[in-house]
């Protein structure tokens, strides 16, 4: 094959490479170094080999947090992706409604994560919060501080409220890029609403959905701030996800070695799952 690349272009990539090196690669290398050592105060390190990895791999606490995180990511993907598609399909394409809907959809995304957590912490309280008080009035004993099921419900609803907009905006961007000619052709063929969605809109949204699923998966798998503010990982450990557990080990217990080993395993899980998502969805797209 002939050489088609302009190698001078690599110099243009150099600043990004340096940025990534300092923000990601060097910290990651440091974490690998920490993961094979025991750390004491005053920067004293002692070789521990694979001890921390074995400890984490055999830890029931890690398995439980990983399980909770996978269930959480599955639930929010199962809710946010279909809901985002439905909302995007029903948003107006012309007129004054477009900017109104876009601004309303963008609002939750603009709120800082810890503020979202605080909003839902207050919202869910049954003495002063609208959600908690309304559920109490309906006769439902709602208490996210003491009941694990209620804590999960609150964290999931909060995430859906916060992030469905991202899926909506991405899907909407895919939908508005479809030329009118496609819809006219479908109308001439007498295509049903479902057929239009299945054979015109969904294929056109495929790429943006790939991005949406990847972003939402990675973000939900790394979720920390919102559940930490609302439930603090409780009641018990019922909403302690991997990142919350990691921070407890690293900063709470100051066990940097096990925390670093856990970070590496956590990173490898995200890398594998993201690669599987990306490969499956891009190949599905290519086959079409």
């Amino acid at each position: 094959m002939d050489k088609t690349w302009n190698n001078k272009a690599w110099f243009m990539v150099l600043p990004v490479l340096l940025l990534v090196a300092f923000s990601a690669v060097i910290p990651l290398m440091t974490v690998v170094n920490y993961s094979v050592q025991d750390t004491f105060g005053n920067n004293q390190f002692f070789w521990a080999g694979t001890e921390w990895y074995e400890e984490i791999l055999h830890s029931d606490r890690f398995h439980a947090a990983l399980g909770r995180n996978l269930v959480f990511s599955f639930i929010i993907l199962a809710i946010e992706v279909p809901l985002g598609i439905v909302i995007a399909l029903n948003m107006p394409r012309r007129g004054w409604g477009v900017p109104v809907c876009l601004v309303l959809m963008a609002l939750p995304l603009l709120i800082p994560w810890n503020v979202v957590g605080t909003i839902w912490q207050v919202f869910g309280r049954n003495d002063i919060g609208l959600l908690g008080h309304t559920l109490e009035s309906l006769g439902i004993k709602y208490n996210y501080v003491q009941n694990p099921l209620h804590a999960w419900f609150t964290v999931i609803i909060m995430d859906v409220w916060h992030w469905t907009s991202l899926v909506v905006l991405l899907c909407y961007a895919g939908l508005v890029s479809i030329p009118d000619a496609f819809y006219q052709a479908a109308k001439i063929d007498g295509a049903s609403r479902w057929a239009v969605f299945r054979y015109i809109q969904l294929p056109k949204m495929n790429r943006v959905l790939l991005i949406a699923v990847l972003l939402r998966f990675m973000d939900s798998f790394m979720i920390y701030t919102e559940p930490f503010v609302v439930t603090g990982g409780g009641p018990g450990n019922s909403t302690t996800f991997l990142s919350i557990d990691l921070v407890k080990i690293a900063i709470g217990q100051f066990d940097l070695g096990p925390a670093a080993a856990m970070s590496i395993i956590y990173f490898l899980i995200i890398l594998l799952l993201s690669w599987i998502f990306y490969t499956v969805m891009t190949n599905y797209d290519a086959e079409r």
Binding site: I26, M29, T30, V32, N33, Y34, Q37, N43, F45
Partner: peptide, 14 residues
């Protein structure tokens, strides 16, 4: 680079 806590095995790995 002492803050990166380098060891010979991890250096060889990278």
């Amino acid at each position: 680079l002492s803050w990166m806590a380098w060891t010979v095995p991890t250096a060889l790995f990278f």
